[in-house]
Computed example of a mutant assay.
Amino acid sequence: MLDTHARKFVQPSIDTTASWLLKKGKTPDQITITALFVGVSSSIAYLLGQPLLAVFLLWFSGFLDAVDGTMARRTKTSPFGTVMDITFDRVVELSIIFAIAIVYPEVMWPLLLLTGAIVISMTIFLVVGTVSEKAGMKSFYYQAGLAERTEGFLLFSVMMLFPNILFWTTLVFFAVELFTGVQRFWEARRILH
């Protein structure tokens, strides 16, 4: 929801960074790979007992993830770049979930529920994007929902910074992801019939 409705507020900084990186000769794929490494570094920082650094790295990887898309739209979008982008986003999310599970194994089952909800929601998102004839700014139909990347990062940040409410935050995240999956499923039924 925030990615769709609040992007206009951060887009100027994304545009500026994308322009600067393109002038430096960087490619969107290079930034996608950099975002992956920064995002996975977030989970490593968390495992090393540095939750503030972990949250910073997570958000920086998300920023780079937005920058690589802007760079791609200014040059030439690549189908494989889209595959890398979406796959690496999930790798970053899973690395955070694994790190939290290692540090707090007592919340394993809510984390498993969350992982399942993410898989369901993303499956619907990707299948609708593939079979839909609608197109937008991205290289596939982007199906908005309650939980987009920013909401996920907000909830991951709360999970990492406030372990005393980790159990409940994880269940809230699960509910939000599950709701998003249902929301996307019903939208798919409407637009694909």
Rank of each mutant, 00 (worst) to 15 (best):
L52D: 15
L52V: 11
K76T: 14
L53H: 05
L47H: 10
P51F: 13
L57N: 05
V67E: 07
I86Q: 13
L58Q: 08
L64M: 08
F88C: 01
V55M: 02
S78C: 11
G81R: 09
V67S: 07
G81E: 06
T70I: 10
A66Y: 07
F88A: 03
M71A: 05
D68M: 00
S95R: 00
F88I: 03
D65I: 06
P51M: 09
F80K: 06
T75N: 00
R90T: 02
L57K: 01
T87W: 02
M71L: 00
L48Y: 14
L58P: 04
T70V: 12
A54Y: 02
E93P: 03
A72L: 03
L94I: 11
G81F: 06
G81H: 08
T70D: 14
V67Y: 13
L57F: 03
I100Y: 12
I100V: 15
F80V: 09
S61E: 02
T70M: 11
D65R: 03
T82N: 12
I96F: 08
G81L: 01
R74A: 10
V55K: 07
E93F: 15
S95W: 01
S95K: 01
G49T: 08
T77D: 13
T70C: 14
A99Y: 02
V92K: 07
M71F: 04
V67M: 08
S78A: 12
L48G: 09
V91I: 14
T70Y: 13
S61C: 06
L94Q: 13
D85S: 07
